[in-house]
Every structure is written in structure tokens, then in C-alpha cells.
Design a protein around this nucleic acid. Sequence first.
RNA 1: GCCCCCGUAGCUCAGUGGACAGAGCGACGGCCUUCUAAGCCGUUGGUCGCAGGUUCGAAUCCUGCCGGGGGCGCCA
Length: 546
Amino acid sequence: MGSVTPIAQLRAAVEAASESVAGADGRARARPTLERPKQAGHGDYATNAAMLLAPVVGAPPRDVAERVGSELQSLLGEAVERVEVAGPGFLNLFLSHAWHTAALAHVLEAGTAYGGGAAAPAQRVNVEFVSANPTGPMHAGHARNAAYGDALARILAFRGHEVTREFYINDHGSQVRKFGESIQARARGAEPPEGGYQADYVRELAQALDGPADRDVMEVADAGLALMLERMRATLQAFGVEIDVWFSERSLHDGADPKVTQAFARLDELGQTYRSDGALWLRTSAHGDDKDRVLERSTGEHTYFASDLGYMLDKRERGFDRLLLVLGADHHGYVNRMRAAFESLGGDPEDLELLIMQFVHLVQRGERSSMSKRRGEFVSLDDLVGEIGVDAARWFLLQRSHDTTVDLDIDLAREQSSENPVFYVQYAHARIASIRAKAGAGRVEAALAEAGAHAGDLDPAERTLVKKLLAFGEEVAEAADRRAPHRIAAYALELAQTYTAFYRDCLVVGAEGEGVESFRLALSVASQRTLARSLDLLGVGAPDSM
RNA sequence: GCCCCCGUAGCUCAGUGGACAGAGCGACGGCCUUCUAAGCCGUUGGUCGCAGGUUCGAAUCCUGCCGGGGGCGCCA
């Protein structure tokens, strides 16, 4: 069971009541909301259906509300205690004891799958993220990109989509040679060449590699890239990120019939390219870009953009329904040309989503430091994790919307107290584990079987907690559909607060009254599972003890 | 000049048409014979940048302006 959620049932009832008052046509024209009112006196749920139907029916909103309300009352039967008309025509639903206990039973029956698996239609989604340049270490900006891309992938997968996590390796082009030259120069005790890589890690690479002073430059470059990539893989893994496909840019240029060449041929067929000044241009301006872009220089060399075309062609041929690209803030100038590139290859603009991450500022002792490489102040992803741990790093990077800049307070993130939100949420989870241990596994199992037997009046904290648990499915849907993992973080914090209020007001183990202890144990188990799932979707741990 | 993001409480930010705008931090004041005090409660605090418009209803949608950040190579 569990296919129809208690919320979905309420929605269906609102739809049916609307139809019976305004007809099928009227119902179709209104899309009523069903929301949890902020104010307690406004019931468990409220709908604006009557206000939307009023102009269709041609009657005052409150009159329509009376009619819809009485329909709702008879449709919902014993699930509802009363329906009130309020304000300009809101309908406030006050739900019964039976509805609340049945709702908890629904949550429990769904088990650990609760809240997921409902995407319609399910899509094959490619999420490309991080794609850090392998010629340098990853910094805190990449950490945000990694945390976001990974959490998004987790959420989309939980929602029921088929997800591939992909990392694009920039292992082609003149920068690779420069990288090799820089390592070699350091190995020989010299300065890197003009435009080369100056930073300390290059010196360290020169020592770690086998005899770079005397080998071929490209061999040195490749060995350097391989080592850097291996380190990135390890860093990401430690950060909780597993990449499914490591895609080499160079591979797009290799072989008898390189993908880039195939892309050129395809674009030519579609009439998207032309020759001018000896170069091959793509008509990106025909698809919203400021100007056309070069694919092949007059020298015969391919531009970086040529690789992008080959890469997109490859992704399209792999059959994804959606391509998501998680890009750093410094790449937003590429959005238009990437879109244009995708459309040039015949893609539907809706199937490519470019998600731009805004910057991260680290704040320590009230001082803000930037991630700017230019100023040489950037903190590596490894440093950040070493400083505050994976859980805090991921939480703090994920709790804000991706399109707003983040101030990451290092001191707060390290705080092992309730002032630190990630700690607070984990603590609530651990607290439930402690309660379960006190009750004993056998007692908990029995409680789950008789969760609906609560015979007394429900405490307001119990009612509130049931409704907070019910909201999880919609939160997951919103987080997935709007590419917004931060909603899960906000939800997790609210659920932890709601559980904590329940814990304060309602004794669990040893509670008096028929079925009360069982109900509260079951409610605790459902809360624990949902907290654990929320944290997992963010890639944050859910410890049983702290 | 053109383009993108942002402007909501002292600070960092939620809130993509509904009822008195929310959270965390900060500040101030309380709470340990009680399932984790690594905790809990309360108080404080806002012309939702500004001006128009659409709507029964706007932080939310539209237009203009102001302020902050970023991007605009036949580099990768």
C-alpha cells in the first residue's frame, strides 16, 4: 500500500468537492493549494479553492466556501472533525484523531522508502559536476560544486530518476603541455615558463613523479595528470562523492573517427557552421549568443569549445532525457554559448539545464576571506574538510540555495553544540536511537505493529510531528524538481526542531494510557528514519550516538 | 556598453500569488531529583532596496530606477 498518501487523499477530496460545486470545467480552471497554515487556529490544512472558484461560479467567495466546505465534510467523513470558512474565503480543515493515527501508519508502512520513488515520468538524467581542472588542486568552490552536484544526484535518484554522475576531465589542449613544462622546470630547479603553473603543488609533483627532469614533456604531463586525478578521486570519495563516469576530453579527439569530427559533420549537415578568415565558426548567434564562436582556428587547431560540441554529441547519443551541468560562478559567461551549442546539434532547449553555483566566502573570527586564486588565498577542499569535517562542510555548503553566495562560518561549523545546525539535527537522530535502546528492540517492534491504538487525546506536539513527517514527500519532490537540495537541509532542521518539541512535551518510554507509549515509539521511529533519509540525501552522516 | 546573480531582522539566509513575513546566529533573561543539559524555553528585533503597475489579495508577477557581486579572447 502507501501509493496514495494522506496528503494526496486530501487533495483529491478538495478537487472532487470543487468539481461538485463548479463542475469539471470550473475545477480544471482552478488549481487550489493545500497548505499547512502558519497559525494554529487555522486548522491542520487550509485550501484557497473557494476563492479561485468564486469567479467561475459567479458567487461571493465565502458562499462558495460554504458549499465546497460541506462537500468536503461529507467526502472526508470521519477523517475530518470540522471545516471552517475563514477570512476572505479560506477553508480550514481540522482533522481527526483517526486521520492522524492512520497517517502515521502510512508513513511506517512505506518503511525506509518513505518519501521517495514517485517521479512521473522517471527520466534518465546526467549530472555533470565538479569537473575541476586536473592541473590544479580543488578548492572550497569546488567543494560547493561537489556537494551540490552529489546531493542533487542523490535526491533525483531517490525521487525515482535514473542518474549518472559525471566528471569531465580537461586533459586536452595547450594547458596540458604547459603543465608538463612547469613540472619539468621545477624538477630541473628552474622557474616554470611564461603562463605556466607557479604554485607549490607543482614542485611537490616534480618530486613525486619518476624522473621528470629527463623524460618527454608530454609523458611528464600525463603522469602529472594521472597523479592529480587519482588524488581528486580520493578527495571526492572522502567527501562522500562517487563519480560514475570520468570522461576524458582527449578521448573526444582520439581514434579513427573522433567525436569532435563527427560533431563538425553533423553541424555541417544542419547548416550551423561556416568558414571565415580561415577558421570554422558555429552560428551560436542564431541561438541567443552575443556572437558566433570559433570551433577550429585558422591554424587547424580545435578550440576548447570544439570539445564541448563533441562532448554534447556524445552525451546525446548515450540517450539521456536531461543533461544537467553544474558550473562555477566564473563560468556563467559560457551559458549562452553552451545553450546555443546544444540547440545547434538539434537538442530541445528544455533538455539542457545549466546550474550556476555562486561563490563561497570563508569566514573565520568574523573575517571574510575569498576563494580567489589570484590573491592566492584559496583554501583547498582537503583543508576545508580537515578543518571542519565532511558532515559540517557538506551541510554548510548545501543549506543555501545554489544561486546565492555563501558565507561559510568556520568557527560555527566546528562548534559541537546546538548552535551548529548540523550538530543539532544529528543530535535529534542520536537522541531517538537512545530512546529506542531504552525501550528495547522487542518493545519497539511491538509498538510498530500497534501504532494506531492510541486511545487518548493526541497531544498537539504529536499532531504537529505527524504533519511534519507527512510533508517530507513534497519536500523531496520540490527539492528534486527545482534542483534545490537546500530545501532538504531546511526540512531536516525543522523536523529536528519539531521532534525536539515533541520530546520535551511527551514522555515516550513509560508513557501512561492505552497505546500511548506504542504510538510515541512508532512516531519516534518514523522521525528517526526520516531524519536519517534527509541527512543521507545531503551526504551527511546520521550517528546513533554522539 | 551588453549579459548573469543578489538586495527580506544587527549578521547569514529561507520563503517563485494567499490570512499577523520565518529560521539559524548574535544580544538579553530563565531552566539540570525526569528517555542525551553536546539540551530546552522565553524576550528582543523587519518601510521585504526605491517608485509605479497587474490582482479580491504581491516579498513573490510586470516595468523603470538605485546599490552590491560576477562575466564578456581564434585561452583552457
